[in-house]
Simulated scan of single mutants.
Amino acid sequence: MFPIRDHNPSDRTPFITWALIAINVVVFLSYFPGIGGQERLLMAFYMDWALVPAEASQGLELHTIITSMFLHGGWMHIIGNMLFLYIFGDNLEDQLGHLGYLLFYLASGVAAAFAQMAADPSSTVPMVGASGAIAGVMGGYLLLFPRARVDVALIIFVIIKVITVPAWLMLGLWFGLQLVNGAASEAAGGGVAYWAHAGGFVAGVVLVLPVWLRRGGPGFWRHNHGLPPHAERFSEPPAAGAQPARYDDAPASTKVPRAGQRRVDRQSPWGGSR
């Protein structure tokens, strides 16, 4: 199960999200097509620029905490990461502003790196990927937009079905899988940095918490429904025969949308109609 889009428009053009995607793609194309099939050269490159917990935990090569966030291990790795960033990043940037979002993204990536180092400080396996920072974006999205609708592709053997689920369900399941797989990978010696994912996710929730509280905490879900103001959800349609109110005179919570505006069914903060 992986997301393909959300139904959560944003007011602000996500310049930083687009720039982060572009930087990751350009960096990947600058090295991987040339040395991706040569394991020795690829490993030497990663040893210089990827995060090696055994070194960073001793205060060595600390620059790799940042540089590793812009490296990837293969085509599916970068495609998956950039898809998640594209879907969830624009709404966080809308709420945090361009500079605030950039700092949030980098801070989440740093927190993810430290979480992985804390889980296995003696590891000599290079860690690469934007997954930790993007996990922070997902954690912040979960707090601010728990009931935003997300289309996910559900793959069962050879059958692919697209379903729509609330963000809290999709992101909650994803976070739970990181915890379960992280605990299992210690014994199995898995190569995915699950604890970096979990650490980045938690960091994202914590970093966005002041914004959520400043917006009114649970009231942000109640009054704004976890969506930008222009995407306000509307009440149930009026009874048959009722005269529609003029848009400019109607209360904000019951305005009839103008032609071309989007109408979205009203839902409770954790999914389901009310």
Rank of each mutant, 00 (worst) to 15 (best):
Val264Trp: 11
Ile23Lys: 04
Ala183Ile: 05
Phe45Val: 06
Leu92Thr: 01
Thr164Asn: 08
Phe234Pro: 00
Leu154Gly: 01
Pro33Gly: 09
Leu169Arg: 03
Gly271Glu: 07
Gly271Pro: 01
Pro126Leu: 02
Ala193Arg: 06
Val26Thr: 03
Leu102Ile: 03
Asp265Leu: 03
Ala231Thr: 04
Phe2Cys: 14
Pro121Phe: 12
Val165Met: 12
Gln38Gly: 12
Leu142Gln: 08
Glu61Arg: 13
Met69Gly: 09
Leu20Tyr: 01
Glu232Leu: 08
Ala111Glu: 02
Glu39Arg: 15
Gly36Pro: 15
Ile160Met: 01
Trp49Ile: 02
Ile78Val: 03
Leu60Met: 12
Gly100Met: 05
Ala115Val: 12
Trp168Glu: 00
Val206Ser: 02
Met1Ser: 15
Asp94Phe: 00
Pro210Gly: 09
Phe157Ser: 09
His63Gln: 06
His72Ser: 15
Thr254Arg: 08
Gln58Cys: 13
Ala252Arg: 12
Pro218Asn: 07
Ala135Cys: 15
Phe84Met: 05
Trp270Asp: 02
Met76Pro: 07
Phe70Ile: 02
Val162Arg: 08
Ala231Leu: 08
Pro33Leu: 11
Trp195His: 06
Gln95Met: 00
Leu106Arg: 04
Tyr105Cys: 07
Leu179Lys: 04
Ile78Gly: 02
Ala242Leu: 13
Met117Pro: 07
Tyr86Leu: 15
Gly217Cys: 07
Val256Leu: 14
Phe88His: 02
Met47Trp: 02
Ala133Asp: 03
Phe220Arg: 04
Gly139Asp: 03
Leu173Ser: 02
Ala188Lys: 12
Val158Gln: 12
Ser185Asp: 00
